[in-house]
Simulated assay, not measured.
Amino acid sequence: MSDAVRLTQVRKTYGKGSGAVTALDGVSIRFQRGTFTAVMGPSGSGKSTFLHCAAGLDRPTEGSVELDGTELTQLGEKKLTTLRRDRIGFIFQAFNLLPALTVAQNITLPLRLAGRRPDRALVDQVVRGVGLAQRLGHRPAQLSGGQQQRVAIARALVTRPAVIFADEPTGALDTRTAREVLGLLRQSVTEAGQTIVMVTHDPVAASFADRVVFLADGRFVGELAQPTADTVAERMTNLGAWAGVA
């Protein structure tokens, strides 16, 4: 199985001299196509910096980031913007929907920005998959939080991205709705072969993934395969204690 994303010896430092802060400290990791990976770690461990560098939203100070066979660190801003639009899907805690647009318009927005005609069959398939067929004419303000996140998921899926990066995608949702949304993400991996990398602090959310990787002090310090909420919570507790002593 080939890699959708590969980071090699990635360092990210903010500031210079004595005031420099290293957010990522020589990170090397791979994410295979068709897999669901959760990234966890204590507050300040580098999770957000990792996601921003892996997704081409920020440039590493050193090292390389390869996405779908393309080395991101060598791209100019214009090509990087095009790659993010065409090959990457994003799902955030804040749903980031445009309030003046309908559900249908929000879902197909990335395609229209790219000048691509929406594939009606694919759009219909995605819309049915996330349970929004009866909501296409609604605007975000007319939807619940869970429905808005479903729109965001559909928007991320409709471009057939090489990878979806999710940053705390269930952080604003109640427990039941969060499980439904995570089930949709799991389904997109199992049934459609999507690749998902999700940053989360929630052991239950992480249990939907194929594996969990743990960050502490800007380094990956371990992983779990086929995680359960209990095994993730136990590892995080130990990780937190270890990170506090280090």
Rank of each mutant, 00 (worst) to 15 (best):
R11E: 13
T108H: 04
R117G: 05
P140F: 01
A141S: 13
P161H: 06
Q93P: 07
E180K: 10
V232F: 08
T228A: 09
G146Y: 05
L182M: 15
V212S: 03
Q134D: 15
K12I: 04
Q134F: 04
Y14E: 10
P42R: 08
G46A: 13
V27A: 07
D217K: 14
G56F: 03
V27R: 01
V221P: 09
L184C: 11
R179A: 15
A178W: 06
A172L: 02
D3M: 07
I91Q: 02
K16D: 12
G34Y: 00
R135V: 04
K47A: 06
G76T: 05
Q125V: 05
A121L: 12
I153L: 15
V126D: 02
G129P: 05
A133C: 02
V204C: 13
G137F: 12
V10G: 02
L215G: 00
P203H: 00
V27N: 03
A54E: 07
R150I: 06
I196Y: 02
R59H: 11
L24M: 11
L83P: 04
G41R: 11
L122I: 05
V232I: 13
V221K: 14
I153E: 04
L132G: 05
L182S: 07
S2H: 07
V39H: 03
R112P: 02
G19C: 07
Q32N: 14
V126C: 04
T22M: 05
V213T: 13
A241R: 14
L67N: 02
R160Q: 09
Q32A: 15
I88C: 08
F92L: 08
R160Y: 02
R139P: 03
P161E: 05
Q194F: 02
T237Q: 15
T81L: 15
S2V: 06
V39D: 00
R179L: 14
L98K: 02
V126R: 00
Q187I: 05
D119T: 09
G145D: 01
T70M: 10
V21Q: 08
A241P: 06
D68R: 05
G15Q: 10
N238Y: 07
P140K: 09
L67K: 06
G218R: 01
A229H: 09
A233P: 04
D3T: 05
L101G: 10
Q93S: 08
M236F: 01
A55K: 07
G44T: 10
R120Y: 03
A229P: 11
Q125I: 03
F50W: 01
G183S: 12
M40C: 14
A133E: 11
P60A: 09
D217C: 12
R84S: 06
T228G: 09
P42Y: 03
Q187Y: 07
N96E: 15
R84Q: 11
A154V: 07
N96T: 09
V10W: 00
R84D: 10
T22Q: 04
V213I: 15
E66H: 12
A4G: 00
P203A: 12
Y14D: 08
G218W: 03
A152P: 06
